[in-house]
């Protein structure tokens, strides 16, 4: 009985969590493309003006980023200025929650058919690598190991700390600017 009563609250909390995580991830994607050369090497291969979306089906939370050139990404919030080029879609909010709360790795979610790719698969593979790199930087190693297939051995602690600090600073600045605007 109690569980039944709590259900709507839990659903709401889960949805809010996913929305918040998309906001953070979108801003962090923009930030990592500004601070990390390896990420830029990945994103540089995307066409200029390329719009990438992560969304919960059918009309759930979403994040949209654009490749503005030279590997730089720009976070557009949840509204795309034009039709997106690549969309990675979670089939249900529960699946997005599993991934974004690090209970299921992104790669496992793909293998488990929790997500669909609409667009060029090779770009989806590339964007997944960028997301993995982002998670490896901004999450503590123990949590990052739950989020990515393999924690990169090439990321050493000093680099991780410095990059994470720069990314978080940029994300916080963006949040403040958004609130002010």
């Amino acid at each position: 009985m109690m569980v039944k009563r709590l259900q709507p609250m839990m659903s709401h909390a889960r949805r809010s969590y996913v929305e918040l995580m998309f906001q953070v991830m979108g801003r962090a994607l923009q930030a990592i493309s500004e601070v990390d050369e390896t990420t830029r090497n990945e994103t540089r291969e995307l066409p200029e003006g390329f719009l990438f979306e992560m969304q919960v089906m059918p009309n759930g939370p979403k994040l949209i980023v654009e490749h503005t050139g030279n590997g730089k990404l720009l976070f557009h919030g949840d509204e795309a200025p034009r039709p997106v080029d690549l969309s990675i879609q979670f089939k249900h909010i529960a699946h997005a929650f599993l991934v974004l709360s690090f209970q299921e790795k992104t790669s496992v979610a793909f293998a488990n058919d929790r997500m669909l790719v609409d667009g060029d698969v090779s770009y989806a593979v590339r964007m997944t690598r960028v997301l993995n790199r982002l998670e490896s930087f901004i999450l503590p190693k123990l949590i990052a190991e739950r989020a990515v297939k393999e924690y990169p051995a090439t990321i050493k602690l000093p680099e991780k700390l410095i990059s994470a600090a720069r990314i978080y600073l940029k994300v916080a600045t963006q949040f403040v600017e958004t609130v002010r605007a």
Partner: peptide
Amino acid sequence: ALDDGSIMFNPREVS
């Protein structure tokens, strides 16, 4: 090969 869709399902990450 690194951009091929099937690499997502490989049990090890591939650089």
